[in-house]
Nucleic acid binder design. Structure first.
Length: 874
RNA sequence: GGGGACGUAGCUCAGUUGGUUAGAGCGCAUGCUUGACAUGCAUGAGGUCAUAGGUUCGAGCCCUACCGCCCCCACCA
């Protein structure tokens, strides 16, 4: 094969992906002879296109899946999308607005038609993007939260929960988004501190000169006040309890009540109670049987209960007018600046209003308990572990989950109301008549379910639940759930309690959380900042492998990371390095009959690289198991670039360019062996380049995707041999160093004298040393005494290397260098000596460490003597 | 109010159960058209591991305190 001089991913990425698809490699079978390994995708919203967060999701998951697949598991990466009820609906409404249309104009049916068209368009686009990333999803199982299976699961679950009494309908205070005109769950509200005010209002006591001062951050809600509460222990207000106040502007008479909820220390110690518009007030209202007066419409405007003066005004306009009016009638005591946490809709950012409303809820306490236990008893493990604490924290304080949404796009609530007798029918299938009165006049609940209600079922609804399908039996429970830590509450926690409740099993054993991909300056990527990065553009410029590698290297689980072009470039450079190293091997291998590794006698350098390879295999495998993908990728980077390219390939050149054909063939055998294994280790991270090269390595068959992942082989670990080889590299480094220190160009050939205890390994590699160090000749001597000419010299752990001084050398410079080196060695000696004179260390530290320290000390003392001799010689 | 991180080279970050002389990438300096690669090669400079104590034979790592920065949750009207 003809390989291009530089790595060009466009030449092969798309081609290889199509081939993988054609050959059906992504397909996971329920094969009883294999062990299943399943990961379901965190389904991207169909609202738009993928961003770098999705790219990270996919890279991590695909790396795990490919790794397991190569290890022989039946590895299923189940892809799909989320209908994203509210988010998508917001988008479609925006889109319609451009055409001058509203939801009302097109009607429910027309709206849903648009929504499905949207899904086709954007869902399809997301699939294409994922393919560009190289992910090995089983596309035959592509799922969607609103497809038939998932919808059936939603109904099954809803009805089961309802029948168990875990779903109920009731009037409660919920978070209302006036922008989206729907209820939200607690999790869907984002709080941010806004500069606001405290308005202190004076409510007069009926038929008296007395009054009570209350403070509020939302003065417009005073129109719905139905009491003022004080603490029962509060002496200041003891006499007021039970009295009647006259609500300013409204004229309604409201009682003064006593309730523990009121904090005597805070403000005036008296609180206006608006049960319809505040969660705490609602509770107080229940305790005291207060009327609930809602003064706001669904769109945030004031309703008829607000009175003629304010009816129809937007809440913020009403606020201003009310403050004006209160001022005018003398009820406004003062205005105080106040930083206040205000809730905003996580989709449209409107200020959320707590409003009393009839909604559907999931009773959380009974579901939370087993979900907490599962993590506490290690049936589910969070990586990093610290997130389990966050999870506990949330689960333990959880409130009932408001699941109904006043939207059209989503799973319609499977509840029907008989228009004849008022019977409520909760059913898995559409009922045709009322079981109570037989009437056929049934009307389905208008609302849809929280989008997260269906995502919570994702690990099993996508596998066939509630049917007992083959897939469900084989692939469920899934193995790893990987996503960003930002959706622990929305998604992970809810999958856990749903899985346990509906399938009787935890939905996955491991939760692997990653951080947020930020921009170069560490800011979150967002539309408003315009700092988002389109993965496709990055892929277009650098290739999918470079993007994948850059996202995964140098990143620890759960930690945020920063995206930068520089990182992708450096990943791309690494790809280029792999490409060229492979090109080198393949070019040299051309036309050569390569013997199997078993048939050749390994040279010392060969054993060294094989040893390095084996420890790399060990490290990669171990770290993949611990989900430390960054460490695994880093180990591969070092192995390939430093060990393989910078050292081994360079060491090989003397035999590759030499006359000995058998030696050349043997070297190529090792080169191919190491390259092949390195590519396999890399494949989970960078699937395309590894596949493209793998096929051209002599002796390989088929696709790397379905090859066996390397296994650590202790017979090939060659620990001793690898250690024995190090002096060769030390000598080379020494000579290079000496040359640089005297500004001698590396290409200048010099004669070397080496005094070594064990010269066998060095002489066996003298060709390589000569080539890599730039030596013209190598002579072994007993000691410096044997030298008649003046030399430059450097001491390594095992030998001393001398280079004739010649006229190149700057003696002062050399003296400085030696003096510095001497200082360092003396420092080491005193450190080691101190350690060894420390009884505690000698007695308590492990023996091998103590011995190592002794050996080190000896070595340093020896080095010191040699350096001193050299200094004298100068 | 409660909880969780982070602070290591100029920048971005690794550092696995405490144990060789604390690492990498980028940047910087110097020198190299060394028959795979300038998307490269070689060599080097650069760190009181935020600060102060403590535990230990031994601390970047464990404990305490403190400073700085960030995030999450809750929310007192």
């Amino acid at each position: 094969m003809e390989m291009q001089k530089t790595y060009n991913p466009k030449d092969f990425e798309d081609r290889l992906y199509s081939e993988w698809m054609e050959k059906n490699y992504f397909r996971a079978e329920a094969d009883p002879s294999k062990i299943p390994f399943t990961i379901v995708i965190p389904p991207p919203n169909i609202t738009g296109q993928l961003h770098l967060g999705h790219a990270l999701d996919n890279t991590i998951i695909d790396a795990l899946i490919r790794f397991k697949r190569m290890q022989g598991y039946s590895a299923l990466y189940l892809p799909g999308c989320d209908h994203a009820s509210i988010a998508t609906e917001v988008k479609i409404v925006e889109e319609m607005k451009k055409e001058g249309l509203t939801k009302k104009d097109v009607g429910r049916e027309g709206f849903l038609k648009r929504a499905w068209a949207w899904k086709e368009k954007y869902g399809g686009r997301i699939v294409e993007q994922m393919k560009k990333m190289g992910v090995s999803c089983d596309w035959s199982r592509l799922a969607f939260t609103m497809d038939e299976n998932c919808s059936r699961a939603v109904r099954e679950v809803f009805v089961n929960l309802y029948e168990k009494g875990l779903i109920y309908r009731g009037d409660r205070i919920i978070n209302w988004c006036p922008g989206c005109k729907t209820a939200l769950s607690d999790a869907e509200v984002e709080y941010s501190e806004d500069a606001s005010y405290f308005w202190h209002l004076k409510y007069p006591v009926k038929d008296s000169d007395e009054c009570i001062v209350v403070a509020t951050t939302r003065p417009e809600t005073m129109l719905g006040d139905t009491a003022v509460a004080v603490n029962p222990k509060d002496k200041r207000y003891e006499h007021m309890v039970g009295k009647t106040l006259v609500l300013p502007l409204v004229g309604r008479e409201i009682p003064v009540i006593a309730d523990e909820y009121v904090d005597m220390e805070f403000g005036s110690g008296a609180v206006k109670i608006t049960p319809a518009h505040d969660p705490n007030d609602f509770e107080v209202g229940l305790r005291h049987d207060l009327p609930v007066i809602r003064v706001m419409n669904d769109d945030g405007s004031m309703n008829e209960n607000a009175g003629e003066a304010y009816k129809g005004l937007d809440r913020f306009a009403a606020r201003e007018k009310i403050v004006e009016d209160l001022k005018a009638c003398g009820a406004l005591v003062k205005i105080e600046p106040h930083a206040h946490n205000v809730g905003h809709c996580y989709r449209c950012k409107s200020t959320v209003e707590p409003i009393v409303s009839k909604q559907w809820f999931v009773k959380m306490a009974p579901l939370a308990k087993p979900a907490i236990d599962a993590v506490a008893r290690n049936k589910i493990k969070f990586t990093p572990e610290r997130f389990s604490k966050i999870y506990f924290n949330w689960m333990e304080g959880i409130k009932d989950w408001c699941i109904s949404r006043q939207l059209w796009w989503g799973h319609r609530i499977p509840v029907w109301y008989c228009q004849n007798c008022g019977e409520m029918i909760v059913s898995k299938t559409d009922p045709s008549e009322c079981p109570h009165c037989g009437s056929r006049d049934l009307k389905q609940d208008e609302d849809v379910l929280d989008t997260w209600f269906s995502s919570a079922l994702w690990p099993f609804s996508t596998l066939g639940y509630p049917e007992k399908t083959e897939d469900y039996a084989y692939f469920y429970p899934t193995d790893v759930l990987s996503c960003g830590y930002d959706i622990i509450f929305f998604w992970v926690a809810r999958m856990i309690f749903s899985g346990i409740e509906h399938t009787g099993k935890v939905p996955f054993r491991d939760v692997l959380l990653h951080g947020i991909v930020r921009d170069e300056q560490g800011r979150k990527m967002s539309k408003s900042l315009g700092n988002g990065i389109d993965p496709l553009e990055v892929i277009d410029e650098y290739g999918a492998d470079s993007l994948r590698f850059s996202l995964i290297t140098g990143v620890a689980p759960g930690n945020d990371s920063r995206y930068s072009r520089g990182k992708v470039e450096s990943a791309r450079n690494f790809m280029n390095k792999i490409w060229n190293a492979s090109r080198f091997v393949l070019m040299n291998a051309e036309g050569v009959k390569i013997p199997p590794m078993g048939d050749i006698k390994l040279a010392s350098a060969d054993k060294w690289i094989i040893s390095r390879l084996e420890s790399c295999i060990k490290e990669v495998t171990l770290n993949m198991g611990k989900f430390e993908l960054g460490i695994a990728a880093g180990a591969l980077y070092d192995f390939l670039w430093s060990d393989f390219c910078d050292w081994y390939i360079e060491l090989c050149k003397s035999s590759l360019y030499g006359e000995d054909q058998a030696k050349k063939a043997a070297t190529l055998s090792v080169l191919c062996f190491v390259l092949e294994n390195a590519l396999k280790l890399l494949h989970p991270f960078v699937p395309f380049i590894t596949e493209e090269i793998y096929r051209n390595i002599p002796g390989t068959k088929g696709s790397i995707m379905v090859s066996d992942f390397p296994r650590y082989n202790s017979k090939l670990s060659y620990k001793k041999e690898a250690k024995a080889f190090e002096p060769v590299m030390d000598v080379i480094k020494c000579v290079r160093n000496m040359k640089t220190s005297v500004n001698c160009p590396p290409s200048k050939k010099v004669k070397l004298y080496i005094a070594a205890q064990n010269k066998r390994i060095l002489s066996a590699n003298s060709g390589a040393i000569a080539k890599l160090a730039g030596a013209s000749e190598i002579e072994f001597i007993e000691s410096a005494a044997a030298l008649s000419e003046k030399t430059l010299s450097q001491v390594t752990e095992t030998c001393t290397v001398f280079v004739p001084l010649g006229e190149l050398v700057d003696i002062d410079k050399e003296r400085d260098r030696l003096t510095k080196e001497l200082e360092r060695v003396v420092g080491e000696i005193s450190r080691a000596d101190g350690k060894l004179h420390n009884r505690g260390f000698v007695d308590k530290a492990p023996k091998n460490l103590v011995d190592a320290e002794r050996a080190k000390l000896e070595k340093f003392i020896e080095m010191k003597e040699k350096i001193e001799k050299q200094l004298k010689n100068l």
